[in-house]
């Protein structure tokens, strides 16, 4: 009489069902809102409009991207500017995060951290308009400079690449500081002290101990900031003015202004490929893995 344990298998099935039920929202979300739209996007990007309501399979949208220097240039420019913005955000965010995590104590630490959060209580649109009010020709900074006698006439500080960069860095700051603070918080103070004790100085301790320890945080911060920057639409468009070439703007234009969903989808996919590639490259170069970074 060797009966397999029936209760065990029932319990096993029950458990599986439970897990499945719990995972249902996630699966639905992944399939309906992530996977399906992307498949649809891919299919749309691979067709060509022949005439009213008639479409054929074709690579013309991708060919268009590679043959039209404008798109190609915008693509490269967006990637370069995003990488630069990410690097700048890291350069500014690291000391800030270090200060919050390692120098400040108790209440002041929380207050400072909260201060970093405050700009994010309003929408990106409002923040961007805030910058416009500050930097425009008839704006606050221009008036102040004139009042202080530093300049003779009004100064226009909007509508150039530097302004775009300022806006992007500002918008991204929090997303760099938060992971850095948490990773630096987890760095035992005695490691830093040991670094000094054994003869290190501020530079070598930072290079050999703090940065290697913070690497997962740096990588995750950089990934988030890079993706946000690459996918940003408002800041480059509003602050950049007449020469603000940004790839998302191209996608928006293709979809909304031109009704050219085919090219728009192709561009969308190319952006996806670009961000995936650069993130992959960044992880390879910094010898991090995605699981380290998000885990």
């Amino acid at each position: 009489m060797s009966t397999p344990n029936p209760t065990g298998s029932v319990a096993g099935n029950g458990l599986k069902l439970g897990v499945l039920l719990m995972a249902t929202p996630l699966l639905l979300w992944l399939v309906l809102l992530v996977l399906l739209p992307h498949i649809d996007l891919l299919m749309v990007s691979l067709r060509e409009r022949i005439s009213y309501g008639k479409y054929e399979f074709s690579f013309v949208n991708y060919i268009e991207f590679f043959t039209e220097p404008l798109y190609w240039n915008t693509y490269v420019r967006t990637a370069t500017m995003s990488i630069l913005a990410t690097a700048l955000t890291l350069l500014i965010g690291f000391p800030v995060a270090y200060y919050i995590a390692k120098v400040m104590r108790g209440r002041a630490k929380n207050v400072l951290f909260l201060l970093c959060l405050i700009p994010f209580w309003v929408s990106e649109l409002v923040r961007t308009f805030g910058w416009m009010i500050l930097l425009r020709e008839s704006g606050v900074v221009s008036h102040f400079l004139q009042w202080a006698g530093l300049v003779d006439g009004p100064v226009e500080m909007l509508y150039n690449d530097v302004t775009i960069m300022v806006g992007l860095v500002y918008t991204s700051m929090l997303f760099m500081v938060v992971p850095l603070v948490s990773v630096l918080d987890s760095l035992d103070d005695s490691l830093i002290e040991a670094g000094y004790d054994l003869g290190g100085n501020a530079f070598t301790v930072t290079r050999d101990i703090v940065i290697p320890h913070a690497m997962p945080g740096i990588a995750s911060g950089c990934i988030v900031v890079f993706m946000l920057t690459l996918g940003n639409y408002l800041t480059p468009t509003l602050l950049g003015g007449k020469s603000s070439l940004w790839f998302t703007d191209q996608i928006y234009t293709q979809f909304i202004t031109r009704f050219n969903w085919e090219t728009g989808s192709a561009f969308g996919f190319l952006l996806l490929v670009l961000s995936s590639f650069i993130v992959w490259l960044g992880l390879k170069l910094s010898r991090q893995t995605l699981s380290d970074t998000v885990g």
Binding site: L33, P37, G231
Partner: peptide, 14 residues
């Protein structure tokens, strides 16, 4: 609204 990204498709489906 100015903000539309390539995810507009899914948003509109919603």
């Amino acid at each position: 609204s100015l903000r539309t990204t390539m995810l507009a498709v899914s948003a509109l489906a919603g």
